[in-house]
Write a protein that binds this DNA or RNA. Structure first.
Lengths: 200, 200
DNA sequence: ACCTAATGTGAACACTGTAAACATACCAAT
DNA sequence: ATTGGTATGTTTACAGTGTTCACATTAGGT
């Protein structure tokens, strides 16, 4: 990865910038991401990045976008894999969501760290976010249409599931909730919440 | 507030620093908090703050601590006010939690923004966090002891409620979930979750 | 082969956190 | 009341970081 001819032009700098930013993010957290450092690692000047991103924020937005895309992929695997029941599928989706967040803690935090980013300024990020939410949404909607769940609108139920999984993820990531078995914890939370929104 | 003799010594600088930081936080968000700006507003030099806080982080930790203390107070009001049923009390607590977060959005974000702060370095912050969680915890525990709720340990249930309310708060604060009636939204989320953890 | 736009460089600027040396005022002990 | 020590505040300066600007190099179409 991060292919580098030693020619004057890099060839694929934009992607490399994002790659390296993610690397640093996972290794050192957001505070480790510095324009100079990124440039140095790629072997390019500190200001080269500004040919591809107007801002550091714009670069971070791209990193967040990547994150949402990846998360969307992971959620999709649940929809495709035929789990036994719809309800099991929703729960599995919630579990996968939390596990993803914990395994990509710094990036996940960045994805939801809107203070620095402001998604309205970054349409691609907004789109990636919507795609992710939609994946989650479809799952809930299918359950509701199958008569398995309460509520008027599926959005209402989505919000409940999303809140619970996002909250659980954040609290674990930031050390407010400690657990040595994330999957078990996730399964537990998701199951309780699911019970709350399901018709019994 | 922020009493200021124009004598050389301020008299209550430490508290003033925190006050002003919170003011800025609410008006402009975290990025508006700058040591120079805080000093300027109080009428003191940029480095005066370093007599009271080792770091900018330490100041932010104090701001977060204040936040948790205030939130704890709000949660306590629920315990004292005699709501009709225990279950209604838990739900009310969740609603208040979310409303507090939304009304103090920037500060709430800071409270949970561990990346910058790292609570192990700030025992007072850690204590304030524990106090808040304990308030929440007691409520759930009382319900469980009254035979109203499922689960082995009340901690398990606390984590579910906490995850859901924290998640809901964050998603609203950061604009991922849009609603024009926060209280209604909060009540809805809390109710679903509560249903999930309750014996019916 | 040439021209233009895209891409990368180097130096410099502004902003911000922070340290160091110095100044002032409060307080306790005499 | 005097005085010395400590807490508190100031000034100056430095270092790190994002960003801009003028310039250099190259890719790619004509």
């Amino acid at each position: 990865m991060t292919s580098k001819n030693d020619s004057y032009h890099h060839g694929n700098l934009r992607d490399s910038l994002i790659d390296v930013a993610i690397e640093i993010l996972q290794a050192e957290g957001k505070s480790g991401i510095k324009m100079r450092e990124i440039g140095k690692r790629i072997g390019v000047s500190q200001s080269a990045a500004y040919r591809h991103f107007s801002d550091k924020s714009a670069l971070l937005a791209a990193v967040a976008t990547r994150g949402f895309d990846k998360l969307t992929d992971e959620l999709r695997t649940v929809r495709n894999s035929q789990y036994s029941s719809l309800v099991e599928q929703v729960e599995q989706m919630g579990v996968i969501y939390i596990i993803f967040a914990v395994e990509h803690a710094a990036q996940y935090r960045l994805m939801y760290g809107t203070e620095a980013i402001r998604s309205d300024e970054y349409p691609e990020l907004a789109q990636a976010t919507r795609n992710m939410a939609r994946e989650y949404f479809r799952m809930v909607k299918r359950c509701q249409e199958a008569g398995l769940m309460k509520g008027q609108s599926p959005i209402e139920l989505l919000n409940v599931m999303w809140s619970a999984t996002h909250g659980a993820a954040m609290l674990v990531i930031d050390g407010f909730i400690k657990t040595d078995d994330v999957e078990q914890f996730a399964r537990n939370v998701v199951n309780y919440v699911d019970t709350g929104i399901r018709k019994l």
